[in-house]
Design a protein around this nucleic acid. Sequence first.
DNA 1: TATAATAGTGTTCATTTCACACTAAGTCAA
DNA 2: TTGACTTAGTGTGAAATGAACACTATTATA
Lengths: 223, 223
Amino acid sequence: MTDKKYCYEYPHPAVTTDIVVFTIREGRLKLLLIKRKISPYKGKWALPGGFVALHEDISQCAARELAEETGVSSVFLEQLGAYGAPKRDPRERVITIAYFALIPSEKIQVQAATDAAAADWFAMDALPELAFDHAEIVEQAKTRLLNKLGHSTIAFQFLADEFTLTDLQKVFEIIQGEEVDKRNFRKWALALNSIEATGKERREGQHRPAKLYRLSSTVQDID
Amino acid sequence: MTDKKYCYEYPHPAVTTDIVVFTIREGRLKLLLIKRKISPYKGKWALPGGFVALHEDISQCAARELAEETGVSSVFLEQLGAYGAPKRDPRERVITIAYFALIPSEKIQVQAATDAAAADWFAMDALPELAFDHAEIVEQAKTRLLNKLGHSTIAFQFLADEFTLTDLQKVFEIIQGEEVDKRNFRKWALALNSIEATGKERREGQHRPAKLYRLSSTVQDID
DNA sequence: TATAATAGTGTTCATTTCACACTAAGTCAA
DNA sequence: TTGACTTAGTGTGAAATGAACACTATTATA
C-alpha cells in the first residue's frame, strides 16, 4: 500500500469482498474462517476477504482473495449480495460484497494464509463467534446453499472430478442433515442429465466396486 | 454537495444504487427509466439511482431514490446484486448495487423527477438503448421476476390492496407472456393461503360482479 | 468357501400437475 | 320482461411426479 492519498469531491465508502467458503471434510459441512490479528474484532474469527482494488472486477477480487487464502482457483464462486449497514465496521463506512464458494475437499491445500494470523475450518454447527455482521452473511449463504441444492448442480462442486453416486449422496445428506433414500436419489441424479459414467470404477474395502461418474461437459446452472 | 474533499489512504470506489422498477400498465410489464441529462451517456435512458450517502444503509438509499423518482414508498424492494466491472462507468470506478422494485400501477403518481431531465415508463419488450451496463441489470431482474413469480407472492405487489382473482391472473399472464388456465390458476392462488376474500365485490360492465380479495396479514416471502 | 460390506436395481401408492367446458350473475337494449 | 351479452366462478379425470420400501450383485478377507 502506498502513502498516496486519494481524494474525492464527495465521500466514498470502502468496498470489500468477503467469501463464504464451504467444503465438506470429515463428513461435515465446514466453513473457512480467518482469525483477525488487528482491531476491530482482534482475535475474533471472520470470513476471508479484502478490499477491492480499483482495477479489478469484484468477482475477480473475490477469486483472488480466495486463491490467496486457500491456494485454489477455478472453483464455484457466486455472488451472494451486498451488505452495507452504516455501522457494520466501526472504523469507517465499509460496504462488502459477499460471495459464496464451494470447494472440493481434495483440492484443499492447507491454507497458505498470507497476512492473516491463522485460518481454519469450522463445522457449520459449531461456529465460533464471528466478527462484524459475518454471522448474518453465513446464515444467508447456508440458506442459499440449501435452496439451490436440489435445483441445480452445485452439490457436484464439493466432489473431485470423478466420484461415485454414493459420494454424491453423502454430500446431500451432510448438507441437508438427514438421510436420503438411495434408490430415489440415484434415479434423480441420473435423470439430471448432468453426469455420465466414466467407465472406470473405484474399489476399496471388501465389497463390490463403485462406478465412477463425472460431470458432463454441458454444465448449466440455474439462477 | 459541499466543496469539502474526502481523502483516504487507499482508493475507494464510488458506490451507487440503481433500481429496476417494474409496474404493469396498459396491460404490459413496464420499466421506469430516466433520461440522462449529463455525460456520460447524455441523452440515453438509464435506471433511476444515485450515490449512497455515508450515513444511510444501501437499501435505504434505494428506497430514497425510488421515492424521489416515483413518489411512492413502502413498496416491494429487493436486492438484485452488485455490479462492479472496472470500466462500467468511464468517469471513475463505480460499483452499483442493483435493486428491483415492484409497484402497483394505481400508486404511480407521475414521477416528480428531481434532478433528472425526464422519466418515463417503457414496455419491457420495447426498451430503448440503455446507459452503462443497465441492459444487463434489467435482463437479470427480468429473470429474477420470472423465477420468483410462481414460488412467492411477489405478483401481488403489482396489485392494489383489493383485487380480483382475474386481476391477479392477468398479472401472471402479462409477465409470463402466455395464457393461464383459469380454474387451475384460481385453485393455485387460493391454495397459497396468502389471500382472503374481503366480502366485497367489484361490479363493472354488464356481467357478474367479481369477489375482491386482499393479502392475508401473514405475508411471508421466499428467498 | 463362508462372511461381511457396500453397490446397484423396480414397483406400488400417494400426491401434484395439467387439460378441459359449463353454469352463475350481472348489464343493457329491444 | 326477456333475451343477448359478458365476465365470474366452479369440478373431474388423466398424466406425471414424488415417496416409500427390500432384495440381489460383487468384491475382499479370513
